[in-house]
Simulated scan of single mutants.
Amino acid sequence: MVKIGNIELPDFPLLLAPMEDVSDPPFRRLCKLHGADLMYSEFISSEGLIRDAIKSRQKLDIFDYERPVGIQIFGGDEEAMAMSAKIVEAVNPDLIDINFGCPVKKVVCKGAGAGVLKDVDLMVRLTKAVIRSTHLPVTVKTRLGWDENSINIDEVAERLQDIGVQALTVHARTRAQMYKGHSDWSHIERIKNNPRITMPIFGNGDIDSPEKALEYKNKFGLDGMMIGRAAIGYPWIFNEIKHFFETGEHLPKPNIEDRVEAARNHLQWAMDWKGEKLGILETRRHYTNYFKGLPNFKEFRSRMVSSENPEFIFATFDEVLERYSGMELV
């Protein structure tokens, strides 16, 4: 069992990464249904929360069926981070996570996300401000360092644990790498093997198959792993990995019925959550992923992403089911 504060997770839990414009409640619900052990919200700007920005506030929506769930915040100002932690606490998530890893320029320019990797003292002050403002467990997600010449994750891990951080997730790339090149988990393994480190250490980066998940689990000896991009349009990956861990065998790949059901649920849950119009708009980006690899799918996709009529979209799903039924999918 892995513990974060009072949260009890199974041995070697699989975490769903917080992804901007992806990790919303409908997507998290699908991932939970298919085996994710711990969910995180999309990252939320501390300044946006304090300004009462509608989009930021909506990201605070969490539901009991997805627990345990953490809300992730980012920012570069201690007071704003402290205030936003209090706002977050009011919606009663299971934990608060701080993003010190986002490499996107508009975040880094504000001295937030991965920008904080240049100033570990600031990272410590920001984290302390959050920990002092909440009774919830506080965790951190970060990267190896700013670039390959300034990998400072060893210092970061020790100093964060010393001030009360209860788990650390490391994306095994530097900020300079963005999402390119290979992740290097050996740095995370080194942290895990540091006798001073007692908090759970989770790895993130490039886990896209059950085989790779098992290889990394055995090779690096971490407490669990976080999966991000590989789950987009493919929430089945969590149970596939768990089954492979237990049996060494593969679960059958999702068939067309499974894929249509996932797309249908995603659309319905999105409309239930945000209303018909926004629910339809925000689900469009997922269809290509759910139906990846289907031959001659362009016409169906075009209909799905151009219609604002839910009945028409659901009818299109039915046609897809009929057209591709029985076909072996890659």
Rank of each mutant, 00 (worst) to 15 (best):
V2I: 13
K3Q: 15
I7T: 11
P10H: 06
P18D: 14
D21F: 05
D21Q: 13
S23M: 07
P26Q: 12
L30I: 05
H34R: 04
A36Y: 06
F43Y: 03
I44L: 05
S56L: 01
D61V: 00
E89I: 01
V107W: 06
C109R: 13
R132N: 15
L136T: 12
P137W: 03
E158S: 07
D162G: 15
I163G: 11
A167Q: 14
L168W: 07
R173K: 13
M178T: 01
K180C: 01
S183I: 03
K192N: 03
N194P: 09
P195G: 10
N204Y: 09
G205V: 00
N218V: 00
D223K: 12
M225Q: 09
M226E: 12
G228R: 07
R229I: 05
A231G: 12
G233Q: 11
G233E: 08
N239T: 01
I241H: 09
H243P: 04
H243V: 06
P252Q: 07
K253Q: 07
P254K: 08
I256C: 06
R259P: 15
R259V: 02
K274M: 15
E276M: 12
H286G: 11
K298Q: 11
E299K: 11
R303K: 15
S306Q: 10
E308I: 02
P310V: 05
A315H: 06
F317Q: 02
S325W: 00
M327W: 14
M327D: 05
V330M: 14
